[in-house]
Protein backbone atom coordinates (compact mmCIF):
# COMPACT_ATOMS: atom_id res chain seq x y z
CA UNK A 1 0.00 0.00 0.00
CA UNK A 2 1.03 3.57 -0.51
CA UNK A 3 1.98 5.66 2.50
CA UNK A 4 3.92 8.84 3.14
CA UNK A 5 7.13 7.64 4.76
CA UNK A 6 9.47 10.29 6.15
CA UNK A 7 8.03 12.84 3.77
CA UNK A 8 8.17 10.69 0.65
CA UNK A 9 5.68 8.44 -1.03
CA UNK A 10 6.49 4.78 -0.41
CA UNK A 11 4.94 1.49 -1.43
CA UNK A 12 5.16 -0.97 1.45
CA UNK A 13 4.03 -4.56 2.04
CA UNK A 14 3.69 -4.02 5.80
CA UNK A 15 0.24 -3.95 7.33
CA UNK A 16 1.26 -2.93 10.85
CA UNK A 17 3.90 -0.63 12.31
CA UNK A 18 5.76 -3.70 13.58
CA UNK A 19 5.83 -5.13 10.02
CA UNK A 20 7.03 -1.82 8.66
CA UNK A 21 9.95 -1.58 11.08
CA UNK A 22 10.94 -5.13 10.09
CA UNK A 23 10.49 -4.47 6.38
CA UNK A 24 12.87 -1.50 6.68
CA UNK A 25 15.35 -3.59 8.72
CA UNK A 26 15.23 -1.15 11.61
CA UNK A 27 14.32 -3.56 14.44
CA UNK A 28 17.60 -3.26 16.26
CA UNK A 29 17.66 0.53 16.23
CA UNK A 30 16.73 3.01 18.92
CA UNK A 31 14.01 4.93 17.14
CA UNK A 32 10.49 6.26 17.40
CA UNK A 33 7.52 6.12 15.05
CA UNK A 34 4.83 8.68 14.51
CA UNK A 35 1.61 7.84 12.66
CA UNK A 36 -0.49 10.77 11.50
CA UNK A 37 1.14 13.06 14.08
CA UNK A 38 0.61 10.63 16.97
CA UNK A 39 3.53 8.84 18.60
CA UNK A 40 3.15 5.06 18.39
CA UNK A 41 4.30 3.37 21.60
CA UNK A 42 6.63 0.42 21.07
CA UNK A 43 4.13 -1.75 22.92
CA UNK A 44 1.54 -0.85 20.25
CA UNK A 45 3.60 -1.60 17.12
CA UNK A 46 1.94 -4.99 16.60
CA UNK A 47 -1.57 -3.67 17.00
CA UNK A 48 -1.21 -0.43 15.05
CA UNK A 49 -2.46 -1.07 11.52
CA UNK A 50 -1.28 0.94 8.56
CA UNK A 51 -3.79 2.46 6.19
CA UNK A 52 -3.33 3.83 2.72
CA UNK A 53 -2.21 7.44 2.84
CA UNK A 54 -0.89 7.28 6.42
CA UNK A 55 1.80 9.80 7.22
CA UNK A 56 4.54 7.87 8.97
CA UNK A 57 7.65 9.40 10.46
CA UNK A 58 10.50 7.25 11.74
CA UNK A 59 13.18 9.14 13.65
CA UNK A 60 16.41 8.36 15.42
CA UNK A 61 19.13 10.25 17.26
CA UNK A 62 21.97 11.99 15.47
CA UNK A 63 24.72 14.37 16.53
CA UNK A 64 23.46 17.73 17.75
CA UNK A 65 24.21 20.48 20.24
Amino acid sequence: MKIQLNGEEANVAARTVADLVKELKLESRMLAVERNLEVVAKSAYETTNLETGDRIEIVHMIGGG
Binding site: L26, R29, I62
Partner: peptide, 19 residues
Protein backbone atom coordinates in the same frame (compact mmCIF):
# COMPACT_ATOMS: atom_id res chain seq x y z
CA UNK B 1 25.36 14.70 26.05
CA UNK B 2 22.85 16.36 23.75
CA UNK B 3 21.55 14.67 20.61
CA UNK B 4 19.23 15.76 17.81
CA UNK B 5 16.14 13.93 16.56
CA UNK B 6 15.94 13.42 12.79
CA UNK B 7 14.35 11.20 10.18
CA UNK B 8 15.98 7.81 9.67
CA UNK B 9 17.49 7.38 6.24
CA UNK B 10 15.13 4.70 4.98
CA UNK B 11 17.30 3.61 2.07
CA UNK B 12 20.42 3.16 4.17
CA UNK B 13 19.21 1.55 7.37
CA UNK B 14 22.38 -0.43 8.01
CA UNK B 15 24.49 2.69 8.41
CA UNK B 16 26.33 3.35 11.65
CA UNK B 17 24.54 5.32 14.27
CA UNK B 18 25.68 7.90 16.86
CA UNK B 19 24.38 5.70 19.66
Amino acid sequence: ITVAVRRVNITDAGKENLL
